[in-house]
C-alpha cells in the first residue's frame, strides 16, 4: 500500500462529507418546518434530537477508532479497552464536579491519566501476549469497574448509580449549545480519523502493521516490537479518554457500565461490523451499531436485543469481513484482510 491517503480526490471526498454532515441539522430543521436559525438557537425539535443521536455516534466512533488501532492495526486483542474510555469519562466528571477545574486543565490532566493507564497496560504487555493479554486486561478493567462501584468512593464516583450532577462549562453545554458541540464532536472524529490514517502510513505505523502480520519477523528485522505496541496503546488510550471526555460533557450521568466488559465488546462489535483494521470501518460500524440499537429499541421494544443478535449473525455470514472490509475484497484490493486469513491458518 504505497499510495498516499492524502491524495486530492480523497481529501475532496472527505471535505464534501464534512460539509454534508455540518449541513445535515439545517436540512432536517427545514424538512421539519423549523427555520435554520432554530438549529443555532438549540430549539427543541427533531433537528436537535438527531444532533444528539449523531453526537453519540461520533463519541462511539472515536472510541471504536482507538480500539481499531489496538486490535485492527497492531493486532493486540484487549478486553480492557472500556477502561480507557471510562477513565476519561470519570476523570472529566470528577474534575468538573469535585475539583471545579476548567476545560483546559482537565484535558491536560486527562492526557496524563491516559498515559499512566497505558503504561499500566504496558507492564502487562511486556509479560503476556495473545489471549492471555486479553484476559489480564479484562482483569484490570474489571478491577477498575469494581472500584468505581465501591461505596467507599461514592462522593466522587457516585458508586453504582453513576456519576451525577456534573456541571459542564456553558460554552460547550450540550443543551444550550447543541450545534456547537455537534460541530466539535464532528471535527474531533474527522481529526482523529485523519491522524490515525497518517499514523498508519507513518514508519511507526508500518511497524505496527508488521507486528500484526508477523511479530517474530518484525523482531527479527531488529524492531523492538514492545515499544511500537506501547505507542499504539498510548495513542489509543489518549483517544479513548478524549471520547470519554466528550461522553461526560454530552451526558449528565456517567454510568459504571462504561467500564464493563460489555462496553469493550461493543467496541469489538463496531469494528467487526465495519471491518477490522480499516479505520473508516470503525466509524461506519459505530454509526450502524448505535443507530440499529436505537431504532430497533424504538420500533420493536423489548425484543430488539433478539433482532440485534440475529443481525449480528447475519452480518457474520453475509458480510464476512465487515462492511468496508468486504467492500474492499469484492472490489479489487485485499488490504487489511489477508492477515485474518493468515491468522486463522497459523492458529490451527
Amino acid at each position: 500500500m504505497t499510495k498516499s491517503t492524502f491524495s486530492l480526490s480523497n481529501s475532496l471526498g472527505l471535505l464534501a462529507l464534512l460539509l454534508i454532515m455540518i449541513a445535515l441539522p439545517f436540512a432536517i430543521a427545514l424538512f421539519d418546518g423549523q427555520s435554520p436559525a432554530a438549529v443555532l438557537g438549540s430549539e427543541t425539535g427533531s433537528a436537535k434530537f438527531i444532533q444528539g443521536l449523531l453526537i453519540e455516534v461520533f463519541i462511539l466512533a472515536i472510541y471504536a477508532l482507538s480500539y481499531d488501532l489496538v486490535l485492527g492495526v497492531t493486532g493486540l486483542l484487549s478486553f480492557g479497552h472500556a477502561m480507557f474510555f471510562a477513565v476519561g469519562a470519570y476523570w472529566t466528571g470528577i474534575a468538573f464536579k469535585s475539583l471545579g477545574w476548567g476545560v483546559g486543565v482537565t484535558l491536560l490532566a486527562l492526557v496524563a491519566a491516559a498515559v499512566v493507564q497505558a503504561l499500566l497496560f504496558g507492564v502487562v504487555l511486556a509479560r503476556v501476549k495473545g489471549i492471555t493479554f486479553a484476559l489480564v486486561t479484562l482483569g484490570l478493567a474489571s478491577v477498575f469497574h469494581i472500584i468505581i462501584q465501591a461505596t467507599e468512593f461514592s462522593t466522587y464516583t457516585g458508586a453504582d448509580v453513576g456519576l451525577q450532577g456534573v456541571v459542564v462549562p456553558e460554552w460547550i453545554d450540550t443543551v444550550d449549545q447543541r450545534f456547537r458541540f455537534y460541530v466539535i464532536a464532528l471535527l474531533a472524529t474527522f481529526g482523529f480519523y485523519l491522524l490515525y490514517r497518517r499514523f498508519v502510513d507513518s514508519p511507526t505505523g508500518r511497524v505496527c502493521v508488521a507486528i500484526r502480520e508477523n511479530e517474530e519477523r518484525a523482531l527479527a528485522l531488529g524492531y523492538n516490537t514492545f515499544y511500537f505496541k506501547l505507542i499504539a496503546l498510548l495513542l489509543a488510550s489518549i483517544t479513548a479518554a478524549f471520547a470519554g471526555f466528550l461522553h461526560t460533557v454530552h451526558q449528565p450521568i456517567v454510568s459504571p457500565n462504561v467500564a464493563s466488559l460489555g462496553f469493550t465488546v461493543a467496541a469489538l462489535l463496531m469494528i467487526l461490523i465495519g471491518g477490522v483494521g480499516t479505520l473508516s470501518g470503525a466509524i461506519l460500524g459505530a454509526a450502524v451499531f448505535r443507530l440499529l440499537e436505537y431504532y430497533l429499541e424504538r420500533w420493536f421494544g423489548p425484543s430488539a436485543s433478539f433482532l440485534l443478535g440475529l443481525i449480528y449473525i447475519g452480518l457474520v455470514f453475509f458480510l464476512p469481513y465487515g462492511i468496508i472490509g468486504t467492500w474492499h475484497i469484492s472490489g479489487f484490493r485485499l488490504k487489511g484482510v489477508t492477515w485474518l486469513l493468515e491468522r486463522g491458518r497459523s492458529q490451527n
Binding site: 467487526l272 464476512p320 485474518l340 486469513l341 486463522g344
Partner: peptide, 8 residues
C-alpha cells in the same frame, strides 16, 4: 478461518 468473527 475467521477467528475474530467467531467472537461476534
Amino acid at each position: 478461518d475467521r477467528p475474530i468473527y467467531q467472537l461476534m
